[in-house]
């Protein structure tokens, strides 16, 4: 299974940091290979070219690798490692916040995103405005395509699971619509979140008992609503 998914490598100056980021990212993406490459071989702080090269080589199961780094030489070492691969196109080093980027990339990879999509997901985690205020985005609503409105679907869901839309349920939700051809939005009060973005969902801080509105537009809008409703009915597998 994991052979079909894009893999991640986390390059850091610290072994502990790389391991921790990989651990947190992998938790949200059980079928994605996430390899840490942190610290020097003697356990010291620094970046180890050979360890990075080995991690990238081992991580790639054919669908490519997205490499994240913390700072400075980690970026340069990662870039050199990728350049020295037999096929440098197999991997890409992305400029993204390490923790948020790794999690966003892991979720995208779990959802079957290709290398470019996974890399974009990591980059998009930088300075994202986590939620869009519906009041502000109302402007564009009028001009919205009438056809899109026709293929739209909507549902109200009252969260019954203990933790609400916290990290794990948010990841499950984002994952279940990752490959659906529809724009899916979750609204709580005045705030709206992109259902494919774990951060956006978590920023709603929707809790047990809250009622959220799910709206989907696109050819598979109905399917998207059905999947989310089913997930919520299963109490997010808690």
């Amino acid at each position: 299974m994991s052979g079909e998914r894009v893999a991640l490598v986390v390059v850091s100056h610290s072994g502990g940091l790389a391991d921790g980021v990989a651990e947190v990212a992998a938790q949200m993406a059980p079928d994605v290979t996430v390899r840490p490459a942190g610290g020097l071989s003697d356990g010291g702080i620094g970046t180890d070219f050979e360890a990075v090269l080995a991690a990238v080589t081992e991580a790639d199961t054919g669908s490519g690798v997205v490499v994240l780094y913390d700072l400075g030489s980690a970026q340069m070492t990662a870039e050199m490692a990728v350049e020295s691969l037999p096929e440098p196109e197999a991997a890409v080093v992305v400029d993204a916040p390490l923790v948020e980027g790794a999690i966003a990339a892991a979720v995208s990879a779990q959802g079957g995103g290709d290398r470019a999509a996974v890399a974009d997901a990591a980059r998009a985690a930088a300075g994202r405005s986590e939620v869009t205020d519906t009041a502000e985005s109302a402007d564009g609503a009028d001009s919205e395509d009438a056809a899109a409105a026709e293929s739209g679907a909507k549902a109200e869901i009252t969260l019954a699971n203990e933790v609400g839309l916290h990290a794990r349920p948010a990841a499950l939700l984002a994952r279940c619509v990752a490959d659906v051809d529809a724009d899916v939005r979750i609204t709580l009060g005045d705030t709206e979140a992109d259902a494919r973005s774990v951060f956006s969902l978590m920023s709603l801080t929707a809790r047990k008992g809250d009622t959220v509105v799910v709206t989907a537009t696109g050819t598979q809008a109905e399917d998207a609503i059905a999947r989310i409703t089913a997930l919520a009915e299963r109490n997010f597998d808690e």
Binding site: L40, G44, G46, T47, D48, F49, E50, G72, S73, M76, T77, E79, M80
Partner: peptide, 15 residues
Amino acid sequence: LISKVGGAAGPLYGT
């Protein structure tokens, strides 16, 4: 140097 330096000077002098 690329393999052993471990800091920015490694990839830079190495390159």
